[in-house]
């Protein structure tokens, strides 16, 4: 496969495609660029034009008959995805802002998340909680994803580096590595983690998929799953699944380094620190020193009141004390 290396870096489309064929037949060693994956649409038939995304993020449209899919072993693909997933995105520090004054318990975030990550109905990467903190303070709805702490207790206790924090602040779980000891569940003060107690929901359909650590799909029995800040979406410049699914403008997501967060409903981008300053932003349980990357705006001036039927459930947590 020395032909690959001999060629100059800049290629014409034709040459590029020819190489795909060659590479496709032989090994893909040394062609890390191609490991990035070429997404070609399986559904289209012969003679049609298809779009492929090159490793350099160039979108090309070609005759399908010209394209030969690169035969990649599962392992090689996995290695690439693992490396990309563990490295994270340079120069970024992702943050989420959740405006509690807007949350109406619509739960679109929860269903979008469960669909994206192939979760069972009782598995919540994000969970909308009915909260009441003291007897006389008003109840409110509180979406609770993983807080992606900068001092994550869950990551500290992991014995095998299966859960880890990336340079961009996102805390991920590698279910190819996880031994299922559940120490992270015990350590997380936000109850943000779930476990695959049984065979995952789409175990059979997902059996042939290559595991993407940024999506945590396919889920695996006996391993942890958790909110990933939709690392796969974020890499593409898209907002997380929950954020864009919200109909009520609850979520903002963005980059602390850019001092900007984008609302998932209106797509408006605003200054991150100003948003917090103007609305009294805070983090959950700051006294624990976990330094969350998820910020909350208080449930002040809600236009639609807390549902009376949810009041008992909200008060239940308090009743024990």
């Amino acid at each position: 496969m020395s032909e690959q290396e001999e060629k100059p870096k800049k290629k014409t489309r034709r040459e590029f495609l020819q190489q795909l064929g060659i590479v496709g037949i032989g090994s893909v060693l040394g062609s890390s660029a191609i490991l990035a994956g070429i997404n070609y649409d399986k559904k289209k038939t012969e003679g049609q034009r298809i779009r492929i995304l090159t490793a350099e993020n160039e979108l090309l449209e070609i005759e399908k008959s010209d394209a030969t899919p690169v035969v990649k072993t599962k392992y090689e693909n996995l290695t690439y995805l693992q490396k990309q997933g563990r490295d994270g995105i340079e120069g970024k520090r992702f943050v989420m802002v959740i405006d509690l004054s807007k949350c109406q318990n619509a739960r679109k975030c929860m269903s979008a998340c469960q669909n994206a990550h192939h979760l069972r109905p009782e598995q919540h990467h994000i969970n909308v909680l009915k909260m009441e903190e003291t007897e006389n303070t008003p109840p409110f709805y509180m979406p609770k994803p993983c807080q992606h702490c900068d001092n994550p207790p869950c990551v500290s206790v992991c014995p095998v580096d299966a859960t880890f924090k990336r340079q961009d602040g996102i805390v991920l779980i590698d279910n190819e590595r996880c031994i299922g000891c559940r120490f992270c569940i015990a350590a997380c003060p936000y109850s943000a983690r779930v476990f695959n107690w049984a065979e995952p929901l789409h175990a059979q359909e997902d059996a042939d998929k290559t595991y993407d650590v940024e999506l945590n799909v396919p889920q695996k029995k006996g391993t942890i799953s958790k909110c990933l800040f939709s690392a796969d979406q974020v890499r593409l410049g898209k907002l997380p699944y929950c954020v864009s699914a919200c109909p009520n403008g609850v979520y903002y997501f963005g980059d602390e380094n850019e001092d900007a967060v984008t609302n998932g409903t209106t797509k408006e981008t605003v200054r991150f620190r100003k948003l917090l300053a103007d609305n009294g932003g805070y983090t959950l349980m700051p006294e624990l020193g976990t330094k969350p990357r998820v910020y909350y705006l208080p449930p002040k001036g809600k236009e639609v009141p807390f549902q009376e039927k949810d009041r008992d459930e909200a008060a239940e947590h308090l009743s024990h004390s």
């Binding site: 909680l129 009915k130 459930e313 947590h317």
Partner: peptide, 10 residues
């Protein structure tokens, strides 16, 4: 008895 309420689960 975790810090946050246990809800929306069986």
């Amino acid at each position: 008895h975790p810090f946050l309420p246990i809800q929306n689960v069986p």
